[in-house]
């Protein structure tokens, strides 16, 4: 059974004097428990597609169902991790992670125990009473991951979550995420513009084209994990993906030079 079904999805934006087709006829079946990366240069509509799955914006045409239910609103069945962390700065780490449980109406002692378990799992036990401003970027993203894991949602949506982190922190969070995924069996839709990150993480990599955003290529990654970035298979795939992505990047730059876009 497919966990996420994306059916003929179009997304058009009105811009002054023009119309941008951000997504054009996207069809995608994502299986339950699959780790999928959406890859492409900026402006290819990968975040637009993620936001549509999250329910933050509605497709102009087409439909999206998650776990058999059509997406109409954002909801805790599709936990989202943002690049900007989006932690509530006025809450301690503990309260941030607890927020979703409180909203759900989980009993106090059950919620507390669950939060402690999650903080422990992400190596945050010592930081429960800190405020987000006192944490590093990597720590903040760990808290954000703990916060969506608290929802126990079958689907995790991640919008370039490690994009703002340094290379070492990034790798350690990628490993952490793979561990969590192996342990909890979530379906993960992960947006990135890093080819290496996509190969390191995903079961399946979907490359999107620059405006209009369409599916350019859908590649299954069969390499066993942990994957070695120095291995020949890794680099063969990397070369192929680089070629695909840079074609789209060139279209993006051409559009910029023609003054069609500023993003």
């Amino acid at each position: 059974m497919s966990d996420i079904l994306i059916n003929h999805v179009y997304k058009r934006f009105a811009v002054p004097g023009n119309e941008v087709v951000a997504l054009k006829d996207i069809n995608l079946d994502i299986a339950s428990g699959e780790f999928i990366c959406l890859l492409g240069p900026s402006g290819c509509g990968k975040s637009t597609l993620l936001n549509a799955i999250a329910g933050f914006s509605h497709p102009t045409e087409g439909s999206i169902t998650v776990g058999g239910r059509p997406v109409v609103d954002p909801g805790p069945d599709r936990g989202m991790v943002f690049q900007e962390y989006a932690l509530f700065p006025w809450m301690t780490v503990f309260k941030n992670v607890r927020f979703g449980l409180e909203v759900k109406g989980v009993a106090n002692d059950v919620a507390d125990a669950r939060v402690r378990e999650l903080l422990d799992m992400l190596g945050l036990s010592e930081f429960g009473e800190r405020f987000p401003k006192d944490l590093s970027g990597g720590m903040r993203q760990r808290v954000a991951i703990a916060r969506v894991l608290a929802l126990d949602s079958p689907v995790l949506l991640m919008d370039e979550p490690f994009g703002a982190l340094d290379a070492l922190t990034r790798r350690s969070l990628q490993d952490e995420l793979l561990k969590i995924w192996a342990r909890l069996g979530k379906t993960i839709v992960f947006v990135t513009h890093s080819i290496e990150e996509a190969i390191y993480l995903a079961d399946r990599i979907v490359v999107l084209t620059y405006r209009p955003g369409t599916l350019k290529r859908d590649i299954r990654v069969e390499m066993p994990r942990p994957r070695d970035a120095a291995s020949p298979e890794f680099n063969t795939l990397k070369r192929e993906l680089s070629r695909l992505v840079s074609e789209e990047q060139q279209r993006h730059e051409a559009a910029e030079r023609a003054g069609l876009t500023t993003d």
Partner: peptide, 27 residues
């Protein structure tokens, strides 16, 4: 807006968002 989006994603309704997100963010 990112806090509002995060709160909606975590399942919060309008009243919870007002009380626990907008009010503290405005303090």
């Amino acid at each position: 807006g990112i806090y509002l989006r995060a709160a909606r994603n975590l399942g919060a309704g309008p009243l919870t968002i007002f009380r626990r997100v907008m009010l503290p963010a405005a303090t």
